[in-house]
């Protein structure tokens, strides 16, 4: 199984910064691979974001702040 070293992920995330331009795609696009690859590229950052969010919630509740439920858990429409 291929594992992606952290350094590679960091390098890949660096690609975000270089995205000053996006040229048009070639005639053929394989939608699957590119869409899976970009999710993997973003995984570290998005996962970290969620972890921080959860951790931040805990810090807030430790100091007695009420945690606000995410809007998605709203009552039936």
């Amino acid at each position: 199984m291929k594992t992606k070293p952290l350094a590679l992920r960091i390098l890949a995330l660096g690609a975000l910064v270089q995205l000053a331009t996006t040229s048009r795609a070639a005639a053929y696009i394989d939608p699957g691979s590119g869409s899976f690859f970009v999710q993997m590229l973003l995984a570290g950052l998005l996962g970290a974001g969620m972890a921080i969010k959860a951790y931040w919630g805990r810090i807030r509740s430790f100091f007695g702040f009420k945690s606000t439920p995410p809007p998605d858990d709203e009552a039936p429409q």
């Binding site: 040229s23 053929y28 939608p31 691979s33 970009v38 999710q39 590229l41 973003l42």
Partner: peptide, 26 residues
């Protein structure tokens, strides 16, 4: 933007979808 670029760079990829992994949190 990154997604579009990734689609372009992987247009001829032969890797199966199981080559890509992301965790639950991600």
């Amino acid at each position: 933007y990154l997604h579009a670029r990734s689609q372009r760079s992987k247009a001829h990829s032969r890797q199966g979808r199981r080559a890509y992994k992301i965790g639950r949190l991600a």
